[in-house]
Simulated assay, not measured.
Amino acid sequence: MDDQIELCHEAPDAEEYTALRLAAGLSPKDIAGARIALKQSIYVVTLRGDDGQLVGMGRIIGDGGCFYHIVDIAVHPSQQGRGFGKLIMKALTDYLDANAHPGSYASLIADVPADQLYLKFGFEYTQPKSVGMYRRY
């Protein structure tokens, strides 16, 4: 891939989204579910190479007033280590800084060692006061 990367704010299509997630080591997602989910995003950041190939992304989902959740932070393995995760997180947190309402809550679930990146953007561990929980279907 070329060194030229374009930052965009349009959601990828479901097929390239699911492919990037798998390549980056994230859990697989159903294509039909992905089509619905991507349309419901509050804010999307994508990174594309000169060839238009999706090389990274991140999204904010939530209710847009009180709760925001950062998801899908992914960078293709061929492009990792170039600061693209930081670029994505900066764009997402800049959006929140400009648009989140006072008293709102932004959250994310961090895979280790990515938690170290999120700490740099002001995110804190919830333990011992609270813990993240999930239920997979």
Rank of each mutant, 00 (worst) to 15 (best):
S41P: 10
V45F: 04
V45P: 03
T46M: 02
T46K: 00
D51H: 09
D51Y: 07
D51R: 05
G52N: 03
Q53V: 07
Q53I: 06
L54K: 04
L54P: 04
L54Y: 00
L54V: 05
G56P: 00
M57A: 02
G58F: 02
G58C: 07
I61S: 09
I61A: 11
I61M: 13
G64C: 08
G65Q: 14
F67A: 13
F67E: 09
Y68M: 11
Y68C: 07
V71D: 08
V71E: 13
I73A: 01
I73L: 08
A74H: 01
A74G: 05
A74N: 05
V75R: 01
H76T: 07
P77M: 10
P77Q: 12
P77H: 11
S78Q: 14
Q79F: 12
G81N: 09
R82P: 03
R82L: 13
R82K: 14
G83K: 09
G83F: 11
G83L: 08
F84K: 06
G85N: 04
L87E: 08
L87P: 05
A91Y: 05
A91N: 07
L92A: 02
T93Y: 11
L96Q: 08
D97N: 14
A98K: 14
N99Q: 14
H101Y: 15
P102G: 13
G103M: 08
Y105F: 15
A106L: 10
A106Y: 06
A110N: 02
D111R: 14
V112H: 12
V112Q: 13
